[in-house]
Computed example of a mutant assay.
Amino acid sequence: MKKRKLILIGIALILLYILFGVITDGNHKLMILLTLSSVFLITIYFLKNFDETKYKYCFFLIAPMLLLFTIAGFLGNDFSRTLQYLIFIPVSSLLAYGYLKKRYILIIPLALIAFYCIANYLFNTIFIFVSNKDAEKNINFPAITLLEHNKKRVYLKMDKIIVLDFWSTSCGICFEKFPDLEELHNKYKENNRVEIYAVNFPLKRDKFNTTIKILDSIGYKFKKVYAQSSSEIENKLHFNTFPHLIIIKDGKIRYDGMFETEKNTLIFSTEAEIDKLLKE
């Protein structure tokens, strides 16, 4: 009876996780903070009156969530984030078990502080590390055809550090990153060694004139160019997901990965990558 009740509570935790996704609009940092805190507090609440506290009871409570994330990890393409849920949810459960065994009230605030640190520092850093572990390179940059708004060809100056932020009109995150790109532009606009471009990747819905109007209406000052062919980008640069960042120095690709501007990121910050190349 206890096991069945705990599994039902675990299913309720899944519904709570889905609710967190809706409330936070898919913000992973807030979602993992709320999820870990909920697992911890709900485990304590429902197990505090059990005659005998065993970790197997805690496990039955989180088992439905672990099963959900395991399935999602195999079916989805974001396994690095899924894997972290599979690691940190049992950690949250173990902390709750520790409190139930020892009844040290200090465990509760310490656990909540730990969840905050996981959400704001460790979670995103691990995700970026897994996603960008092969991002730093030193290979030749192939010639690609880029156009200005008047369809005149743009020739990149290979004696500079060139930052290319590839985006498409169907990519919501790309638009969310534009203020960060503008911030980078403002920081380096007086540095004649750095040039920063937003490069439109022309998917079927990215009509040339419409894309120009979209960028003009937003009013950002960073340089804007347009790839002539999506197939050329895919064949020569080997990516088709966005936003995607490439940094070039002396005609060589030195960074090929995520456009990362998160302030709490401990590794692979775009600004840090540019500054590192400037110091070489």
Results as ranks from 00 to 15, higher is better:
Lys3Asn: 09
Ile9Ala: 12
Leu13Asp: 09
Leu15Arg: 04
Ile18Lys: 05
Leu19Thr: 15
Ile23Tyr: 07
Ile23Leu: 15
Asn27Thr: 10
Asn27Gly: 06
Leu30Arg: 02
Leu34Arg: 09
Thr35Leu: 08
Ser37Gly: 07
Ser38Glu: 07
Val39Asp: 11
Ile42His: 10
Leu47Lys: 10
Lys48Thr: 04
Tyr57Leu: 04
Ala63Thr: 12
Phe69Val: 01
Thr70Met: 15
Gly73Asp: 02
Leu75Lys: 14
Gln84His: 09
Ser92Pro: 13
Ser92Asp: 07
Lys101Tyr: 04
Arg103Asp: 06
Ile105Lys: 14
Ile113Pro: 04
Tyr116Met: 05
Tyr121Leu: 10
Ile126Lys: 01
Ile128Arg: 08
Val130Asn: 02
Asn132His: 06
Asn138Pro: 04
Lys151Cys: 09
Lys160Gln: 10
Ile161Pro: 10
Val163Phe: 06
Asp165Cys: 06
Ser168Gln: 07
Cys171Asp: 04
Lys177Val: 11
Leu181Asn: 08
Leu181Ser: 02
Asn186Thr: 04
Asn186Phe: 06
Lys187Thr: 11
Tyr197Asp: 01
Leu203Pro: 00
Lys204Ile: 02
Arg205Glu: 14
Asp206Cys: 02
Phe208Met: 12
Ile214Pro: 02
Ile218Asn: 14
Gly219Val: 13
Tyr220Met: 11
Tyr220Pro: 07
Lys223Pro: 07
Lys224Asp: 12
Val225Leu: 04
Glu234Cys: 00
Asn240Ile: 01
Ile246Leu: 15
Lys249Leu: 05
Gly251Ala: 03
Lys252Glu: 13
Arg254Gln: 15
Asp256Ala: 11
Phe259His: 11
Glu260Pro: 00
Asn264Glu: 05
Asn264Ile: 02
Thr265Pro: 05
Ile267Cys: 07
Thr270Gly: 07
Ala272Arg: 08
Glu273His: 03
Leu277Trp: 13
